[in-house]
Design a protein around this nucleic acid. Structure first.
Length: 205
DNA sequence: GCGACGATTTCG
DNA sequence: GAAATCGTCGCT
């Protein structure tokens, strides 16, 4: 299930979200002078009975783009601090999407480091969904952009396909429920994959 | 209109 | 372990 052309990638994203997620591993995301090879992603099934999805309770202004056609960016702001990015998948109305959790910087390394000055090791530059958006310079302005064309943010098929044998799966990170659903996918052994953290609810003082 | 909380990161 | 920090969404 690896796309080798843009057309195949478009078809993959139009299909079931789990296959789309696995197919996005190894793909290159390029924006604002930096390119990242995806090493970790998570699938969210939208309105199809996935309580962890931002679209689970139906359409709202924030998640509206997820209800549209596949191949567009769903970017959201969280914790008052961070931006994270998804690729919308599946048919219109389903609202499924794949969260881009981590990657390896393969282009524009100097720019990426300038955006995360405190980072010492290159493998930590995009090791986490908000970190990935930071090195790519993504924020509100990326919301809804089409990712498979000639726009400012692009997703392209892998230069070297990722063998199915090296793809690992497990529970999604930080989600409140659905801990039994193994919809987090990563490239086994890759040092740029983020560490697993269980969701911990915050308490008010 | 109000308030609890979040698909996180960083520091102590 | 806990703070930072604010947009979003359901409703106490």
């Amino acid at each position: 299930m690896t796309a080798t052309t843009g057309s195949e990638l478009a078809d993959l994203l139009a299909g079931p979200v789990v296959a789309a997620a696995r197919g996005l591993l190894g793909c290159t995301v390029s924006a604002n002078g930096v390119s990242v090879r995806l090493t970790e992603v998570e699938a969210y099934a939208g309105t199809a009975g996935d309580p962890a999805s931002h679209a689970h309770r139906g359409r709202t202004p924030r998640n509206a783009v997820m209800f549209g056609p596949p191949g567009h960016a769903y970017v959201y702001f969280t914790y008052g601090v961070h931006w994270c990015m998804n690729v919308v998948t599946g048919p219109e109305g389903e609202a499924s999407a794949v969260l881009l959790r981590a990657g390896e910087v393969i282009g524009g390394l100097d720019i990426a480091r300038a955006r995360r000055v405190a980072v010492r090791r290159d493998v930590d530059l995009a090791r986490g969904p908000a970190r990935l958006c930071t090195v790519l310079g993504l924020g509100r302005s990326a919301y809804g952009l089409f990712l498979l064309g000639d726009g400012p943010v692009r997703v392209a098929p892998p230069a070297v396909p990722v063998p199915a044998a090296v793809v690992a799966a497990g529970p999604r990170v930080g989600v409140t429920g659905a801990h039994d659903v193994p919809w987090r996918f990563w490239i086994a052994g890759d040092p740029t994959v983020s560490t697993y953290r269980r969701h911990v609810p915050r308490r008010r003082s």
